[in-house]
């Protein structure tokens, strides 16, 4: 298309309250900060355990089981990394913010640059997202187990601020994992007809349809779950690290 016909600036729009670049800039800053923080924790920290609290970066404690003394989190961290890295929502965000493909919708790009989308290396790996989902679901089970432990203080039930934070975190992670597009496909999206061959006789939708519908509803907000669960993982680790450094005490809400 001829470049003489460039449309006017897209910032003067009645449909947006924020300028269009605000989202990409936010993503750029927050994602970068989170990646740096996680890298620091996973590579340089030796433990995420404070009594009965375990940081989500260190679960399951594979390094401990195998007796590896340095950077034990590395053994597991690649799972959430690949899971989030190939998530449809994260893809949308980092293609915008980091690859500027496009930075904002309708913004000019460098058309002479070869663009292969998700058909060629490296982005073709996103097509295996479902496999990282399977692994992430296993990790999620361990996180639930850790959350139960977070409510047991020396064999007694109790509730600390840390228990509540860990519960919130695992709930958000569950919402994020179950609202995944690949899971939506697995649960029913791959079907064309749910009640065939009963057709019109199927007055009540079958279980599989109802689950697909439910997951579809959660899936609408997948991006929100992605942000919220990223923040909660971050907050949980920061909290446990502050406890470990004896900077704050763990307040017990219920003995």
């Amino acid at each position: 298309m001829p470049s003489s016909v460039r449309a006017a600036s897209a910032t003067a729009s009645p449909t947006r309250y924020w300028p269009p670049w605000a989202q990409s800039v936010t993503t750029l800053v927050v994602f970068s900060a989170f990646v740096l923080y996680s890298f620091g924790v996973v590579v340089f920290e030796r433990t995420g355990q404070y009594h009965n609290y375990l940081s989500p970066f260190f679960s399951p404690p594979l390094g401990q089981w195998l007796g590896i003394p340095f950077a034990p989190a590395v053994l597991v961290a690649w799972i959430p990394l690949l899971f989030r890295g190939t998530c449809y929502y994260y893809r949308r965000e980092y293609y915008h913010a980091f690859a500027a493909d496009p930075f904002t919708c309708g913004a000019p790009e460098r058309p002479e640059r070869a663009y292969t989308g998700e058909r060629a290396w490296p982005w073709v790996v996103s097509n295996w997202h479902r496999y990282w989902w399977y692994l992430a679901a296993i990790v999620l089970l361990f996180l639930w187990k850790d959350t139960v432990s977070a409510f047991i203080f020396q064999g007694q039930f109790g509730v600390g601020v840390g228990s509540v934070i860990m519960l919130g975190n695992v709930v958000l992670l569950t919402a994020y994992t179950l609202s995944c597009h690949a899971f939506r496909h697995l649960i029913g999206g791959s079907r064309d007809c749910f009640a065939c061959p009963r057709g019109i006789e199927a007055v009540r939708p079958p279980v599989r349809f109802r689950w697909w519908q439910r997951i579809s509803r959660w899936n609408r907000h997948h991006g929100r779950w992605a942000w919220a669960s990223m923040m909660s993982v971050w907050a949980t680790d920061v909290y446990i690290r502050l406890l470990l450094a004896h900077i704050i005490p763990d307040v017990r809400l219920l003995k």
């Binding site: 989308g117 982005w123 073709v124």
Partner: peptide
């Protein structure tokens, strides 16, 4: 060529029929 789409959502944002 669906593999060329990088799910950046711009199409959905402009659809006047609100199709997801």
């Amino acid at each position: 060529g669906v593999g060329l789409c990088n799910v950046t959502h711009c199409c959905t944002d402009v659809c006047p029929e609100g199709i997801e």
